[in-house]
Each structure stands twice: as C-alpha cells, then as structure tokens.
C-alpha cells in the first residue's frame, strides 16, 4: 500500500547530519540581552534560544537582514557556582514582526564566544 508521497523540505531538519535532530533544541529561557545593531544599542529579552538562533522581544523593530551582536550574561550560580559568565554572539535578523506594542525578532547565530 502506498500513501501519497510528499517531497518535503526536510533538508533543514535532516541535513544537519547525524546529530541534526538534537542540534537545534530551543530552550525557553527569558534572558536580558543587549543588542548592538545598525549603530544603536537595544535592550531585549529572549523568548527562546538555541545554539543556532534566538527569538527575542524589544521596543524597536529591527528589519530582517540586520546584522546584530548581542551579549548574554549569566549571573553567578546559574552556570558556574561562584562566577558570572557571558557569551558574545553575532548573527543576523531573519524575521521580525510587531505584536501590539512589542517588537519581536528572530535571529540566527553565526558565531559565539564565551567572555
């Protein structure tokens, strides 16, 4: 018995290789971040974040294509017993929209480095 065959764009899911299925887990973390983009600095809060991308909300609507840098700061005791930690990420806005007065932006993370 053959069901309807659908060539799907599963490449994004599957093409990440043998570990692909686990490489983009989104963690529902609400973290304050500072975003540098288009010559300005914006305060934002993450809605969810993975090793490859982030969804955040802020006051400003940043258009898709905007190159961004942002810093995630971890207070002491969260991922290190006594010390704080920070990760600098660079990436690009791939999608943005406004919901009432709040602007949302989804960005891919190209590079990161622990500070």
């Amino acid at each position: 018995m053959h069901t309807e065959l659908v060539p799907l764009e599963f490449e994004r899911l599957l093409a990440e290789g043998p570990t692909g299925l686990r490489s983009s887990v989104r963690f529902p973390l609400s973290l304050p971040i500072h975003v540098l983009a288009a010559g300005g600095q914006f305060a934002a809060v993450t809605d969810n974040i993975s090793a490859h991308g982030v969804l955040m909300h802020m006051d400003e609507l940043l258009p898709p294509g905007t190159e961004i840098d942002f810093l995630i700061e971890f207070p002491p005791g969260l991922i290190s017993p006594d010390e704080s930690a920070a990760v600098h990420c660079s990436g690009k806005i791939v999608r943005s929209f406004r919901n009432q007065s709040t602007a949302y932006a989804a960005a891919v993370i190209y590079e990161y480095s622990f500070q």
Binding site: S23, L29, A51, I79, S80, C89, Y112
Partner: peptide, 20 residues
C-alpha cells in the same frame, strides 16, 4: 546531555539550573 556544542551546553545548564 544530548548537546552538541559549548553554547548549547551552557544553555542546557542554565535551563536545568545544573549548578544550583
């Protein structure tokens, strides 16, 4: 932990509050 790099490891630890 089923993670694949250092950032994902940090996010995992943060999410699960490993060090707490």
């Amino acid at each position: 932990l089923g993670v694949s790099d250092r950032l994902e490891l940090a996010l995992y630890c943060l999410h699960h509050q490993i060090h707490k």
